[in-house]
Design a protein around this nucleic acid. Structure first.
Length: 743
DNA sequence: TTGGTGACTTAGAAAAAAACGG
DNA sequence: CCGTTTTTTTCTAAGTCACCAA
């Protein structure tokens, strides 16, 4: 039996040759990749590094030199194969048979054999302000020690932002600024100045300086910009890649975070605190066994060299504000990330098998007399139905946000018979505000959880926390946690949406795409993924709407034109011409005004920009008469149009000639109709999307194989669904799913 | 049983790049 | 071609969850 395969058998058979796409039915044999995981679980926590696993010890740059640019610009690495290496593809290894994403990675066990990289890229050192740019304190320009000046600069550069207007931000910044100032010896000049009152600080000179620098950069020529970009790329090059188990893989955030003022989300108690500069001494590098240690920046030492192959980070340091760990990790397109991603979605698919039983069970337990059980049941219900997060406990030094387990009395409002209004701040202080109907028994239970003596500020689920809840969920299915429900329900929603789609092959891709986005949007709404509306959303909507009105008007005009040509048509096809009367005179005039306004702006802009160009080349400027002439022509066409409207359809001979015969006009009308239709749908799509962020669910929740399936089923190029980065991240999905794939 | 911490995924804002339109 | 708008990528904050020690 397949289940009796022993460890030694697995060792004899290279993993890559054997794996099959795992089928999910009970009667199927367990794929080797799964067995491998079981085996790994029994292995010691940190594997002893076998001598033969010690790989190429040449410095990384030597190894990377083997990289060559192929004609299409893609980088390909040629690294000599090593017999002991499990992961290098060897000759004759057919593409299909090696599905690396099915390999097992587990916490606490070996994740790789060898790893080489060049360490991390540090941000450039602080560039002092010119001597004439100073913080002004109490009306007096002060010279600060460089360390303090840098911090003042962090604030100065952002005084026009909302952050800088936030009193908490100001307070935290100022406290840290004072600390740095004190530590670095106080104000240099005038010597005994004490900076004690935030309000007396005037950062405007610093702000202006950085603003001018920014402007300078913007004004740079194309070539200069490119030069700077190239230099930056060259600097980054060595850090972009690492070699993992003999393969060249991309590193994600190889750049150490530069010092800055912490920008917490929402009402964060620590916002504005100084995030201090990270030095090589703060950094722990993680390398493969025997891999050479990258050279630290001159005059410095690495904090520690670790060789831990049970984790997937390349470097880490502790950040000063919360003393939490920051990692340098692999990029999203790396194999390890791909494997985890694949496993995440497979775990969510596994839930499919159990979901009915789980729902039956929690519905039953909604009636439990035991408070603990009742709370578990209700929490599971909320997580399942409304896709709430687990909701761990948070500290006083964090923003007050909640998830399911940490919901408090004030976060839900109940109204008979079974309506619940959720109103709370979730992750990233994004508001979750929903009026919903819930199961009757859930409603009763929630009422019970809010019953006296509970009051504002008290926990709704006083017997729960995420670890208790998750422990309970494991009982349903191994590896089941609260977050699996979010993945499951998101992907399930997408699958259902795709199933319900009515898409015809001949439909334009654009429209298919809109339907995909609509489905995507359903998921995003379920997960409450939001974005702040862009500040010019309103105007851009207005603009798009004006555009549609204009198109509509042009269509009407053509219809009138048609009537002028053949007045008899009106009687024959009343319906076709009915909308002429619907489009009222005032509306026409409005459109004409809009066109006129637009023209005016256009001409004025053209005039000034043309003159600026001429000024630069010291040529003669355009005379004001030119502008006047242009404006007059705009005026004239407006007057003509108004006359046209006032007198009823009475088009000039010229216009009639341009319009052509009946057939031609009808064709034009049809074109306009199409354009109006498309513009209208796109407007609506954009408006619907204005507060909803589709990206997060696409990247993290919707099984990418669903998108691949959609792409193949409806003939929409995958490029239209996934950006380049996303295609790289989801190669595993693109290579494994076809048009029949189901979540 | 709690509390801390380490390692990982998920998140929206902001910056950068690409596409658009006149 | 150039300024503007839209899309994509980068950045790093903010979650989840497992594990460990007391």
């Amino acid at each position: 039996m397949a289940t009796k395969i022993t460890g030694s058998l697995i060792d004899e058979q290279p993993l890559k040759k054997k794996v099959k796409l795992s089928a999910r039915k009970n009667d199927e044999e367990i794929p080797l990749s799964k067995l491998k995981i079981k085996l790994k679980n029994k292995e010691p926590q940190v594997q002893k590094i076998k001598k033969e696993n010690l790989k190429d010890e040449r410095p990384l740059n030597k190894l990377l030199q083997h990289s060559e640019k192929t004609p299409d610009g893609e980088t390909e690495t040629k690294i000599e194969s090593n017999e002991n290496s499990l992961n290098i593809k060897s000759e004759g290894d057919s593409e299909e048979s090696y599905k690396w994403w099915e390999e097992g990675i587990q916490d606490g066990v070996k994740k790789w054999d060898t790893l080489q990289h060049n360490g991390v890229l540090f941000p450039p050192p602080y560039e002092p302000l010119p001597s004439n740019v100073k913080l002004i304190y109490d009306g007096v320009p002060v010279t600060l020690p460089l360390d303090a000046e840098e911090v003042a600069g962090f604030f100065g550069v952002m005084i026009n932002t909302d952050h800088a207007k936030n009193p908490v931000f100001q307070k935290n910044f100022f406290a840290d600024f004072q600390k740095v100032l004190k530590k670095s010896g106080g104000v240099v000049e005038p010597k005994d100045t004490k900076i004690t009152v935030f309000k007396k600080c005037d950062f405007s000179k610093i702000f202006e300086y950085y603003e001018s620098k920014r402007e300078e950069r913007k004004q740079m020529s194309r070539a200069d910009k490119k030069k700077i970009k190239d230099e930056k790329d060259k600097l980054e090059e060595p850090y972009k890649y690492c070699i993992l188990d003999g393969r060249k893989e991309q590193v994600g955030n190889f750049r150490v975070e530069p010092p800055s003022l912490f920008r917490g989300r929402g009402q964060h108690p620590k916002t504005g605190c100084l995030k201090t500069r990270v030095f090589p001494e703060d950094i722990i590098l993680n390398l493969g066994p025997g891999s050479p240690v990258p050279e630290p920046p001159s005059g410095h030492q690495w904090g520690e060299i670790r060789r831990d192959n049970t984790v997937q980070w390349l470097a880490m340091w502790k950040e000063n504000i919360f003393n939490s760990v920051k990692y340098v990790r692999f990029a999203a397109n790396s194999s390890l990330k791909g494997i985890s991603d694949y496993k995440k979605f497979e775990k969510a698919r596994e839930l499919k098998i159990h979901i009915d039983a789980i729902r039956d069970d929690y519905k039953k337990k909604l009636y439990s007399k035991v408070m603990f059980e009742r709370q578990i049941a209700v929490a599971t219900y909320l997580i399942d139905v409304f896709a709430l997060r687990a909701g761990g406990e948070k500290g006083d030094d964090e923003a007050d946000t909640v998830g399911c387990c940490s919901l408090r009395y004030e976060h839900i409002e109940l109204s008979e018979p079974n309506n619940v209004t959720f109103d709370f701040l979730g992750k990233d202080s994004i508001r979750y505000y929903q009026k919903v109907e819930v199961d009757k028994q859930v409603f009763k239970s929630l009422k019970l959880f809010k019953k006296s003596p509970k009051k504002k500020g008290d926990q709704l689920f006083d017997r729960l926390d995420p670890s208790i809840l998750n422990k309970h969920l494991q009982g349903y299915m191994p590896g089941l946690t609260a977050k699996v429900f979010r993945t499951y329900n998101a992907s399930k929603t997408m699958q259902d949406q795709i199933d319900a789609m009515d898409i015809k092959a001949e439909e334009p891709v654009q429209e298919k795409l809109l339907k995909y986005n609509a489905a995507n949007r359903e998921v995003a709404i379920l997960c409450n993924h939001q974005k702040s509306v862009s500040k010019n959303h309103e105007t851009s909507m207005q603009k798009a709407n004006d555009k549609i009105q204009e198109l509509l008007w042009q269509k009407i005009r053509l219809k009138k034109c048609l009537l002028q040509l053949k007045p008899d048509l009106k009687k024959i096809d009343k319906k076709f011409f009915a909308e002429i009367d619907d489009f009222k005179k005032e509306k026409e005039l409005e459109v004409i005004e809009k066109i006129y306004e637009r023209d005016i702006v256009k001409y004025k802009r053209k005039f000034t920009s043309e003159n600026e160009k001429r000024k630069e080349k010291s040529e003669a400027l355009l005379p004001d008469e030119d502008l006047k002439e242009w404006l007059e022509s705009a005026e004239k066409s407006r007057a003509d149009l108004i006359k046209e409207v006032e007198t009823g359809a009475d088009f000039s001979e010229e216009f009639m000639k341009k319009s052509g015969d009946e057939e031609k006009i009808r064709a034009k009308i049809k074109k306009f109709e199409e354009r109006i239709q498309v513009a209208f749908i796109q407007l609506k799509d954009r408006d619907d999307n204005s507060q909803v962020s589709l990206g997060t669910s696409k990247i993290n929740y919707i099984d990418p194989r669903l998108s691949v399936m959609f792409s193949k089923k409806f003939g929409v190029p995958i490029e239209r669904l996934f950006t380049k980065t996303l295609r790289d991240k989801f190669t595993w999905a693109i290579e494994s799913a076809d048009e029949t794939w189901r979540f």
